[in-house]
Design a protein around this nucleic acid. Structure first.
Lengths: 256, 256
DNA sequence: CGGTACATTGACAGTTGTCAACTTAAGTGG
DNA sequence: CCACTTAAGTTGACAACTGTCAATGTACCG
């Protein structure tokens, strides 16, 4: 969760600095999805990119946050912490997901780059104004927020009622579905995956300890449900079997 | 969770059928809060009330839902269920909270009246159109949805990381805060409460069993943190002491 | 080819769930 | 108004699951 290497890269990106919105990989899924023409041009002038290495903090709970952002690539996590240090992940941000809250100037969560992450940022003040002027923006953000709320509720079901084994199976299924969606396929049969989270982050996601995550991964492997490749690699022998282990209600509920 | 008595009251209300929006108790907190004049008049013509007795289902997961609604009075719950019947509450709707999702025609959750409930309803089709025409509506709904998302994330922290004792203390604190807020006070010192949920519903809220809820309530009483009155009554001897038992991060995170 | 962070495994303890019996609060009808 | 009925809540004994603490193993970096 902490910067793994002292390589303190400053989070301003040289890469794709001048990339056109039209070429953006998240063009039709992000908060700007419904914007066209003038609206998009406005956004295009205001946007700037920031990059983060795996493990780097993006913002810390309580910090001033003077921008909002869309995840362009990579995976970021939102985490909430109890006074004594117990931490629970409360958001998993994938490409096109939105970070920050319009009208709020301090971060409510710890945001961390789980993998290398590129954000498309806009200063909060100007963005708040755009929200007033461009109904498409507000409308799309509402839609995305409602989706996130659905996902959070699915996640609550997992946290409150699933066993450790079901939690692990559910998590792997979520990653499998997401990966299939990127390739515009339905998940089925044998699937090769790369988990975007460490065991520690998985534990934070699932409300478990690292050790329990590890043991249940081993148990699923022993039972022939999955194969484990390196630290991050997982191969499903049969997607349907994994789903059967996940405790049901596995419709989709994954996004955020 | 099921209708406690066979008194099958049909959920159409005789009460306040013609109540004016101007007199509405949730006028300045509900989705219509920012509407005035013409906008409010539009809503006023379209609204209708429905009442439910404690224990009655409002809508069932997968059912067609042809209206959206605001809770005018009482408490409703949203619940998600696993195939084998394990149930987790995922939403607690208090007066002014919104029920239903614009643009979605089937319910995603089981909604149940925890107490007697009055809903102010609008048919979904017309409401969706109003969302386009009245920016205030969409703006307020976004704001409310973002608040609900925050609350859901606080709830996830509770579900994933708090002990049974902390969960109970947190829940009582949430109810105490809400009640204090209604009376425009800060919660402090000795407080007399009525819990709006049965032990079963509390268990569903907290990701526990009834028995564990009961045991922890007893433990808090034995330790002098609370007094238990009838089935629903609780008296806090000292709000600060309760908070100390709740595991921290008790800022607010309660609403939905 | 090490070094190091990450991951796995084991032994044990503690918390919560399960099953069952019992108690109490509240509502109903005599 | 009280006894009765019934659902809701409590308590106990025990089992199971997950967490804790500690040691060991192993991918992946330079």
């Amino acid at each position: 969760m902490r910067a793994p290497v002292p390589t303190q890269v400053q989070p301003s990106s040289p890469l794709q600095a001048g990339a056109r919105c039209g070429d953006c990989p998240i063009r039709y899924r992000a908060v700007c999805a419904q914007c066209e023409g003038d609206e998009l041009a406005l956004l295009e002038r205001m946007k700037f990119y920031r990059s983060f290495e795996a493990g780097q903090p993006i913002v810390w709970e309580g910090d001033r946050m003077d921008f909002v952002a869309s995840v362009v690539s990579g995976v970021a996590t939102l985490t909430r912490t109890l006074e004594d240090g117990r931490a629970q992940m409360v958001g998993l941000l994938l490409p096109s997901d939105f970070l920050g809250r319009p009208g709020r100037d301090t971060a409510a969560y710890n945001a961390t780059a789980a993998t290398g992450v590129v954000l498309c940022c806009i200063r909060r003040g100007p963005f708040d104004q755009l929200m007033q002027r461009i109904p498409h923006l507000a409308h799309r953000l509402l839609e995305m927020t409602l989706d996130e709320l659905d996902a959070a509720r699915e996640w609550m079901l997992l946290l409150g009622r699933k066993t450790a084994r079901e939690k692990i199976a559910s998590f792997i299924a979520i990653i499998a579905r997401r990966q299939a969606a990127l390739q515009k396929r339905r998940p089925a049969g044998r699937i090769v995956l790369e988990l975007p989270l460490t065991r520690e982050a998985m534990a934070a996601y699932l409300g478990l300890t690292i050790e329990t995550v590890s043991r249940q991964m081993t148990a699923l492997r022993r039972d022939g449900i999955i194969e484990i490749v390196g630290k991050r690699g997982v191969t499903l022998t049969d997607y349907a079997r994994l789903i059967a282990e996940s405790g049901g209600t596995g419709d989709d509920g994954a996004t955020a």
